[in-house]
Amino acid sequence: MKAFTTLSGLVCPLDRANVDTDAIIPKQFLKSIKRSGFGPNLFDEWRYLDHGEPGMDNSVRPLNPDFVLNFPRYQGAQVLLARENFGCGSSREHAPWALDDQGFRVVIAPSFADIFFNNCYKNGLLPIVQPAEVVDQLFRECEAQEGYTLTVDLAAQTITTPAGQVFSFDITEHRKHCLLGGLDEIGLTLQHAEQIKAYEAARRQAQPWLFA
């Protein structure tokens, strides 16, 4: 997994609540058997004026000039600022893959859907929960100031605004450890293989019908 330590990145504000994973990456792109290449189809139905299908040359498709991701001032953004319940809907990991492929490393919102939130960590994408009033403030500042960047420090668990205001955020020790080190979680778990085998043997004894 890709490591995350610190980032100073341009912020793109997506001012909608309940942004679902169908909106983040529409279903027709889920037919891919790869993990990469989803970036150009991130928010496809909002981002383009035509209907997108896999295999199209996205560079020649008509862009929706009213969609925030297409504004010249937000090109190259690495921090997505969002509203409540971001990432609701399906479990498709293609959603964080698409955000990552587009260049986003951080998503800040008042709340996230559980599965999406979890999927982000597996891909070196950092989802940060902040109180609604802080998110409101960041939206105001971001829209008022072109080139608005935020600095995120995972080790310190802080977000710093251009004016120097610092907000802290929560993360579990396990997730922080894995993200900072870019660790292979499967490899970590397999260090406990003997414990898993012992658990499994006891379970087989107690509930043999669960085993073929």
Binding site: I115, N118, T172, H174, E185, T189
Partner: peptide
Amino acid sequence: AHGIGTSEVEHVMATQCLVAKKS
């Protein structure tokens, strides 16, 4: 019973376990 992402699908395939926190 709950849904998981593809990285977790691979994790369960390889380890029979999920890394999880109680709700």
